[in-house]
């Protein structure tokens, strides 16, 4: 399996670390326990396209949002989780 890292190009999956669903957003500091509980533990298990966090640990060390089809393992796209800072070379 390969992941098209927007920074490094198409790379072997062994260079990446998987985190999981990219959609949960960390609640604000004063967030209630229920919201934090949902953020930490509750995940959907969708069939089909799924946006997930992958870390290019043996490459550019960027966190990526990778779109993966959980049924076919097709990876149509990947983008940087955080936009590059202005002035950073690509």
């Amino acid at each position: 399996m390969r992941i098209p890292c927007p920074y490094c190009g198409s790379r072997d999956i062994g260079e990446f670390v998987y985190r999981g669903d990219a959609s949960p957003v960390r609640p604000a500091a004063d967030g209630a326990e229920a919201a934090m509980f949902a953020y930490v533990y509750l995940r959907d298990n969708p069939m089909g396209r799924h946006e997930e966090h992958w870390y290019h640990t043996q490459g550019c060390r960027n966190w990526l949002v990778v779109t993966r089809d959980t049924l076919t393992h097709e990876i149509p796209s990947a983008r940087l989780a955080a936009p590059l800072n202005a002035g950073d070379a690509v």
Binding site: R19, R26, H53, T57, W63, A81, A82
Partner: peptide, 20 residues
């Protein structure tokens, strides 16, 4: 060591990308 670096990178680029 590796896990903490990954954690820091996650915090600064996913959780709080506004931090310089």
């Amino acid at each position: 060591a590796a896990r903490v670096l990954q954690h820091i990178d996650f915090a600064r680029s996913v959780l709080w990308p506004d931090l310089d």
